[in-house]
Amino acid sequence: MKYSQVRVLAGKGGAADHFSEALRGLAVDRRDSVYAAGDQEIKVFESGGRLARRWRTAMPGFAVAVAGDGRVFCGQPGQVEIFDGAGRLQAAWRDEQRLGLVTAIGFSTGNVFLADATGRCIRRYDGSGKYLNDIGNDNRMKGFLIPNGAVSFGVDAKGVIHSANPGKHRVERYTAGGALLGHFGRFDGRDPAGFSGCCNPTNVAVTGGSRIWVTEKAGPRAKVYDAEGALLAVIASDVFDPNCKNMSIAAGSRGQVYVADTVKLQIFVFEPLGGQGGAA
């Protein structure tokens, strides 16, 4: 299985569809529009690559996610801002005692999961913003090992949370209640199936139930695994700036992959060759 780069969105600069300082979060909605959180803005690109909308957020956004009902969640330091599809602010969740920097957001029926990098765990809230429980900090390390400074996870169709635990070179599976179901991944500096460096993978995205997309840092690369943790493909490795770290990744309905280059501030779009390998 191979991927080819088909498009590059955004970039570094002052143009409307460019970012000037940072590009941190990516999300894809059902219509394959790309939501990118960077600087202090959210930019929405149509599937063709044209900038459709952009709006400012209260604080720099570290994560962006699109809920099933089309609302856009933006994770920020200490809070989550919720916008409607047009970018109008609808609510802001703050949980000052608990919630720190939100670096990933996921949904399952009736649940909103917020990755809290300050608390090194995933916080579970209900749809109205009521805190339910923590995931991933019921262990000896009191949370995920994140020398990268970000917790990243994806939620599959069954509501299982796949979270990166970079310090252990693993992707861990949790139930919404916080029970550890299992994990895959191991350290290996040579075999692409293993995770290299001190602490990888940095970011995880999940589509449906069968594909787990991850990115690594140093050297930066994007990979795809199947549900059992078998490597399907290395999507790309040499197009990214070598100093990239915490590259957000998202996958679209046709199996296309979006990876944010955090140094060049570009979004690389890859598509599988031969058109197969689409979402399950």
Partner: peptide, 21 residues
Amino acid sequence: GRCYICPAYFNITSAVDEKGL
């Protein structure tokens, strides 16, 4: 970071031994 696999301690490009290090 008190990493399990510290790239300054290990040569992370070397082969992995039976302990996974």
